[in-house]
Design a binder for these strands. Structure first.
Lengths: 235, 235
DNA sequence: TCCGCTAAGTGGGGTGGCGTACAGACCGCA
DNA sequence: TGCGGTCTGTACGCCACCCCACTTAGCGGA
């Protein structure tokens, strides 16, 4: 399927032209900026979002200060999955982790369109499968693997979705993603830096050596990637 | 909705009589026994299962010996969710954790029936939502909360689904569910025993004090329960 | 009744990550 | 140029849990 823009959403790109055109008319381009919260747990879903070049994190919190990223939504997916499963409220917080563009649609018209658009349904259900697999695998990863490997995995996953080797992120922020303290992230990051795999300074992180980073990460990175490929959502 | 048997599956129970009758003819009663593996990651799904009074665990492994339960399927749900999301292969291992009865259907006729049975679709998609929420919450729980609280949560969740206060389970087995070592489970369990919340011996565990156990568990137990209620799958 | 096996108790040493505290480094802004 | 705020480095004690090893306790079968 050919790209329709320079930045493409893969779910939308998988839809045949006819059904896509009808959908397109109702999709509204929007720029999302870092730190923006799209959903809070328990609140109703007003829009669904198809990331183009932005990146959205799904977070679960156990208290005020401890949070864990359970899922990552880039241009391979959509934010607002509970809505297509027939639930109006989100279970997680959805946080814009990387600024960029997305297409969004208000939930009411989206419901109408979703119900009559079979290819869209199929693409989104397959995506739901991939997202569940991602959540499951990262759950086990966060339980068993140590900080450095998880950080490496996370950076690789982010790189895949951003399509860039450098992005703005502080250690503090990473701590909330990985379920660590800020100091723990600093230690793991400086170990990777020492080996010239990454570089960073004051909120900018740059990946220098992808292969080396893969070697430092756990197998979970590749496992999740394989699942996305199986669901037809690979890069 | 009235019970159709002494043991009822809540997804099936939520389907209007007309659609249910058509479905029922193709459901095959089956007894599942402890230790049986219904799916392995990467293998195709031959049947879907609706537990009546048995209990199925969804497991993710990171290596040969370390596994973690990411989801629990009792009579509130169905095993084989990837299939309804359009994927023929399972992402997790599905292990029978509690012996008992279930209704099953071969995947091919189930696909036909699922496609024409709107209430069944809606019930299963809502269940998918609840399962995702459960997976997310337990992911955070397994990351942040300590062994004793997680064990208490797990026992309560199991009790809800089995409808009994006593069930056969070894510490070794619990270790695989909670992502701990056997010794870690023994320590946590003996702490709960000392406080007369549970009792156990040689593979039998009995819950003595539900309120006390709730107090020892983390909030995650109640959070997940609330999600199931919201999805219309509560006890 | 004895044996063998599995389940569970126990202990000692090691460590990854936590909590806390503080110091240095860099940036933007006045 | 100096200042305040944010970002990162580092250090120390601590604890939950790990790994390894061995013991004790039940249960079932020959």
């Amino acid at each position: 399927m050919m790209d329709r823009n320079s930045a493409t959403n893969r779910v939308l790109a998988s839809i045949p032209p006819k059904q896509y055109r009808r959908l397109q008319a109702q999709l509204e381009p929007i720029t999302l900026t870092f730190g923006q919260v799209l959903y809070e747990p328990g609140t109703s879903i007003a829009h669904v979002y198809f990331p183009l070049n932005c990146l959205i994190s799904l977070l679960t919190a156990v208290d005020k200060r401890r949070t864990l990223e359970v899922g990552m939504v880039g241009n391979e997916g959509m934010a607002g999955m509970p809505f297509i499963l027939g639930m109006g409220v989100s279970g997680n917080r959805a946080l814009v982790q990387g600024s960029g563009d997305a297409l969004r649609m208000a939930s009411a018209p989206f419901r109408v369109e979703f119900n009559r658009n079979r290819p869209l349904q199929e693409a989104l259900y397959r995506y739901t499968y991939a997202l569940m697999a991602q959540i499951s695998q990262t759950a086990a990863c966060n339980r068993f693997h140590e900080a450095e490997a998880r950080l490496a995995r996370w950076l690789l996953m982010t790189r895949d979705r951003r399509g860039a080797d450098e992005f703005p992120l502080t250690h503090e922020f990473l701590a909330h993603m990985l379920g660590l303290r800020r100091e723990g992230v600093s230690e793991a990051a400086s170990a990777l830096k020492r080996r010239n795999l990454i570089d960073y300074s004051r909120g900018k992180i740059r990946i220098l050596d992808v292969k080396g980073l893969k070697a430092s990460s756990c197998a979970c990175y590749q496992i999740v990637k394989t699942v996305y490929a199986r669901a037809g959502l690979a890069a």
